[in-house]
Design a protein around this nucleic acid. Structure first.
Lengths: 336, 336
DNA sequence: CGTTGTCAATGAATCGTTTCATGCTAGTCC
DNA sequence: GGACTAGCATGAAACGATTCATTGACAACG
């Protein structure tokens, strides 16, 4: 159980500890023969760097913290993956925290990251943590917000344009000739919902003969979607929309069930249907769902890059707000 | 940006650094008045413990590593949550790694955990990491395998009895009076698949008049399930099973689509259907799916407890293999 | 030949916390 | 009053990697 340190490696290789450290960190500064001997010694002893000592000396860790709202959500797992891959490219790592929409957990992760002296925090904030994040920044730990345009704060952010996504979805329905649209989703207090609806509105308003009604749901679940779908199916054919845009894919799956199974309405012939988020399930419904995809991995990668920049150059004069455009994914539910 | 250390706290509180440390770690050894003054100083200076220094001194970190096969899978997010909550109860934390069925990533996380000197590793192994884990154990880092009964290795494990789960599912179909069963799933090379099938077999064999046929799929996806469902629906009524057990919920969702929408067969009246895993979607299908639920959180919690024990008492003489029983969840798809 | 510069290697000092042997004080007991 | 004890407090040493001022060797140059 004897723990192997640079000291032991140095002794075996017949060099000083300083040289061992140089081999580890700037091998180009060391003569090839020393490099060789040090490596041999490392292999022989099975030396593994002690990160704690490294961090202590460096004053900060080689990790970044990432707090996501829901680790089960593919959007966030992809985002995390993007950030991780970017970090790994520089030999850095990510500490992943799942706040699960819980203020206490979110705060606990920030505490943890602070005691760990991470090099930066990437967060999709649930609570109002701006004050807390400012304190971290005062201590030299930068933060970048993801999945939320943080205009008005002094933090940089990386997000997706939900307004644009809503417009893209509605425009697609209009492009395939539908004019009487419906938006299914709610509550509007969720920013994503209101943004997507707003975008849809703007597309419809720009189109002659276009109209859009809102069918509110109490949350974004399959069940609520089904209820809304059944409600629409029960209308007389003339009163029904011919294109439906749902606030997310779960709702769309429900609407599809409500229309098709319960109401006997054919998708996309009678009503075209499009969701949002492009969850894995969207491809696997009876009629595969069209959807709007967010560049989740890219968001994570970019967020990490902003952090890297801030952690080496210090805080920027002006926070950057990077907004990505979502992408339309066409499947059978809107195929004409 | 001045970094605040115990030294500063001690100076402000008018005590020694040793006393500050004692307040932090064994307040009962310190006089109430000192405790008070130290806490005041901590608050005033905004002191935050430096974990790196703590770890360095302690020789090990206050974290455990957890490697899961698929961070998006609710089974693993629940498992992680269980482990985290248990760790948090002792003021410890979890470093979560998502191997995503990738050997390189799995190995990279083990490297990371080793340099971080975690107190233990909880892993749902993808590759054959036994040798690697033994090396870690030699260095004083215990490991426990989750979601895999590790008999034959010297490591403890926590898993779920898939044979029993298969039996429970099939028995349930038999209990509601079905006799001509079908098992849909594959390939059998996946241990979960063969175990569940084996369990189902054993239930059927113990029942007079019971039979079970296997409808193989090439993987466990909705698409394959739908194909299998359509195939069964195309048979003459007398040739069809009256109860179907699917290797997982995705397949079951597909079968439901194949039978119902494409074949016009009523579930559960003509054919009862049960899946496995109880994914969130199982409740949201047109006919809510019965399923078999695994105690994921409990697995994580128990795994962490084994680790805690091993990390304080040293390796046990005999590895422990804890096997939990899955639980039947009855919904409309088998309601009689 | 003496000076200068380059390249390697050295090893003591450092990061911040915890531990532990030691010291001090006040109280208790005989 | 002296001998102990219990209760607190002290502060130097230790953990292991990195840094940096310094040394040494050697070549190039005038």
């Amino acid at each position: 159980m004897a723990t192997v340190s640079v000291r032991d490696v140095a002794a075996l290789a017949g060099v000083s500890v300083g040289t061992v450290s140089n081999v580890l960190n700037r091998p180009e500064k060391v003569s090839p023969s020393s490099v060789q001997r040090v490596h041999d010694a490392i292999d022989k002893l099975g030396f593994v760097r002690n990160d704690a000592a490294r961090q202590l000396r460096a004053g900060r860790s080689h990790s970044f913290g990432l707090i996501v709202l829901d680790a089960g959500n593919p959007f966030f797992t992809d985002l995390a993956r993007g950030a991780e891959d970017r970090a790994a490219a520089d030999g850095l790592s990510i500490l992943l925290g799942n706040s699960g929409n819980d203020l206490r957990r979110e705060a606990a992760y920030l505490d943890l990251f602070e005691t760990q002296r991470v090099s930066g925090v990437l967060i999709s904030p649930f609570g109002e943590q701006v004050a807390r994040l400012e304190r971290l920044r005062d201590r030299g730990i930068p933060a970048v917000l993801v999945d939320r345009a943080a205009r008005g704060t002094s933090f940089s952010s990386v997000s997706v344009d939900d307004v644009s996504g809503g417009r893209i979805a509605a425009q697609h329905l209009l492009d395939i000739g539908r004019r009487r649209l419906a938006f299914v989703g709610g509550p509007r207090s969720i920013r994503q919902v209101s943004d997507r609806l707003f975008g849809a509105h703007s597309a419809v308003e720009a189109t002659a003969g276009g109209s859009i009604e809102v069918v509110a749901t109490s949350d974004l679940t399959v069940l609520e979607g089904r209820r809304a779908g059944a409600e629409l199916a029960a209308r007389t054919p003339g009163d029904r929309p011919d294109g439906i845009f749902c606030a997310n894919d779960l709702v769309a799956v429900g609407v599809l069930q409500g229309l098709g199974i319960l109401g006997g309405i054919r998708v996309p012939d009678e009503i075209a249907l499009i969701g949002y988020d492009d969850i894995a399930f969207a491809q696997a419904t009876v009629v595969p769902l069209s959807s709007v995809r967010q560049p989740s991995g890219l968001i994570g990668r970019t967020g990490l890059e902003l952090l890297l920049a801030e952690s080496s150059d210090g805080p920027p004069d002006e926070p950057q707000h990077i907004v990505y455009q979502p992408e339309l994914v066409v499947r059978a539910s809107t195929a004409v």
